[in-house]
Design a protein around this nucleic acid. Structure first.
Length: 530
RNA sequence: CGCGGGGUAGAGCAGUCUGGUAGCUCGUCGGGCCCAUAACCCGGAGGUCGAAAGUUCAAAUCUUUCCCCCGCAACCA
């Protein structure tokens, strides 16, 4: 059953350093989904934000000679700049240092404490005294060395609060059973069960005393609330849960008519798929409908890392190639839900092939012919004049159906791919119908008119379906086709032929073809930090 | 036995859940077209779908075992 409203979120990113293309990937894909839902007329609330507490921020701030708040303020400003640059259409931006979040997290903690879901215990771990930091078994390795400073660590204990996960394990498994589509891809669910739940889940540590940059616990202020209880709850504090204005929360979280969707990376699946539903259960709130785990974007041969000097900064990429090319590449090249890799060659090839050669060139040749043969006016729709017309038309209609079904399933890469097939089909249609030959034959004017109409309509549909991805180019495409006013509404994709009697405007090439050698070198220099 | 991802044409990938003529982009070879962005369209060559065994009328796809690569565990979605 189709829901009528959507709440979609990205993870809140950690502002300890600048964002890179991996963050952009997740956020752009989420944005595409949000734009798609809105385009189809659904209400959609899209949230992203920043997770600003923790020891690392405290340390990095100290090193930078700033207060933690100044430090995160500066970095978060960069988040906003990047999201603006990438045309991210988020409705709100939550920061865990905001009053609206802090107060509610404290309330949540109090509730859980009162419910007996949180208790005071001892946290035991490897402690590095000079760094004043706890590390896990895997972090210290077999040599028991601090991963930060390289000095030996000791087992130490500190007082800490814990969340009783064991109390909710059965309910969680039942929830998985009753909601088979909760976690996508499904392999992630098995991973959760086999890796974390079956071996026995430890209670989750939710407070720390070893650093102070966090939300203090009212009942015991020497403790600050530790990461996940602070971070995950952003999804509801941003909507006004437990505030004087809970309207958005009621509308976009509690209402079963709203589908709530979290997009996240594999590394934080465990927290979203196990602890988050438990927290919500403890609070007596609705759980998310879907959690979609996307893959990691790696560099050609290895994961991107600053030390390897192969991090791609999205800014210069967008400045040089344009926003549409970057968004398109991210969505089309890396199958959403699987790991993928970024390579300069792939980037240039994909942009040239799909955007310049196929879509851009199709628009260009079509507009030229409408100018040449019909004085720039798209001929009226006369149904299927030839079998080729009928074929193109049915492919277009089928494309719309497939696209919607794939997008609804968050199969964004495949959805774009079917649109691309329509574009290819339209290019082939030109060869089949040979308009330049029809133009020379007075008896074929009706056929020629129909060909131009069908082309304009096929391009129009492709442009509309790609609008969530190509936030700028789709509008340029419509402008060149002479599509304005009501024709800009999505529902027209169901009315093949509706683009008629409008005047085209030949404009610049939508996507100029890139010189592969030159542009690949440009990106390589970018990655090398030149 | 730490966890996870992957091994499909020269390169990069999809397809694997729901078994049924092996697909896409690029490259390459040949042809076509001339409306268009040296683009577009058609065709060819090129694959024992990592290996083996099993289930089946039928396996890239399901089961089992093995081999190899990569990521996480250290900034990092």
């Amino acid at each position: 059953m189709e829901k009528k409203r959507f709440y979609i979120t990205t993870p809140i990113y950690y502002p300890s350093a600048r964002l890179h293309i991996g963050h952009a990937y997740c956020t752009v894909l989420t944005d595409i989904f949000a734009r798609y839902k809105r385009l189809r007329g659904f209400e959609c609330f899209f949230l992203t934000g920043a997770d600003e507490h923790g020891q690392k921020i405290e340390k990095n701030a100290l090193a930078a000679g700033k207060t933690p708040q100044q430090f995160v303020d500066d970095i978060v400003e960069g988040f906003h700049k990047l999201w603006t640059l990438l045309d991210i259409s988020n409705d709100d931006f939550i920061r865990t240092t905001q009053e609206r979040h802090v107060k509610v997290v404290q309330d949540i903690f109090s509730k859980m404490l009162a419910n007996d879901d949180i208790y005071l215990g001892k946290y035991k771990g490897w402690y590095c005294t000079p760094c004043e930091a706890f590390w896990t078994d895997t972090q210290v390795g077999t040599d028991h060395i601090c991963p930060d400073c390289g000095r030996p660590v000791q087992i130490a204990e500190e007082e800490a609060y814990f969340f009783k996960t064991k109390k909710y394990v059965d309910k969680l498994l039942k929830f998985y059973d009753e909601n088979p589509k909760f976690l996508v891809p499904e392999s992630r669910k098995n991973e959760m069960i086999n890796t974390f739940i079956k071996p026995g889940l430890d209670d989750l540590c939710v407070s720390r005393t070893s650093f102070s940059w966090g939300i203090p616990i009212r009942e015991n202020p020497k403790h600050v609330i530790y990461v996940w209880l602070d971070a995950l709850t952003n999804y509801i504090t941003a909507l006004g849960y437990d505030s004087d204005h809970p309207e958005l929360f009621e509308k976009f979280w509690q209402d079963p008519e709203c589908e709530t969707i979290h997009i996240l990376g594999a590394d934080i699946t465990r927290f979203h798929a196990i602890y988050w539903p438990m927290f919500l259960e403890s609070l007596g709130l609705r759980k998310p409908d879907r959690e979609f785990v996307h893959g990691l974007l790696m560099m050609k041969d290895s994961k991107m890392s600053k030390s390897k000097g192969n991090v791609v900064d999205p800014y210069p990429l967008v400045e040089h190639f344009g926003l549409d090319a970057v968004r398109y590449y991210l969505a089309r090249e890396i199958t959403f839900g699987q790991d993928g890799s970024f390579s300069p060659e792939q980037f240039v090839e994909r942009v040239n092939s799909d955007l310049a050669n196929s879509l851009g060139n199709l628009l260009n040749r079509t507009v030229s012919m409408i100018n040449k043969y019909f004085g720039g006016v798209v001929p009226a729709y006369k149904g299927k004049v030839t079998e080729f017309d009928g074929n193109l038309e049915s492919v277009a209609n089928e494309t719309v159906k497939q696209y919607e079904s794939l997008m609804d399933d968050l199969k964004i890469t495949e959805a774009i791919s079917v649109v691309n097939e329509l574009v290819n089909r339209a290019n082939k249609y030109i060869d089949e119908t040979t308009p330049w030959a029809l133009a020379k034959d007075d008896s074929k004017q009706e056929e020629l008119a129909s060909v131009m109409n069908h082309l304009a309509n096929a391009i129009y549909i492709a442009g509309m379906l790609l609008k969530p991805v190509l936030t700028r180019a789709s509008d340029k495409l419509f402008a060149q086709l002479g599509v304005t006013g009501d024709l800009l509404k999505y529902e027209n994709v169901y009315k093949f032929g509706c683009v008629e009697n409008v005047t085209v405007n030949k404009g610049d090439q939508l996507f100029p073809r890139l010189d592969a050698a030159v542009e690949v070198e440009f990106i390589q220099n970018l990655m090398a930090g030149k």
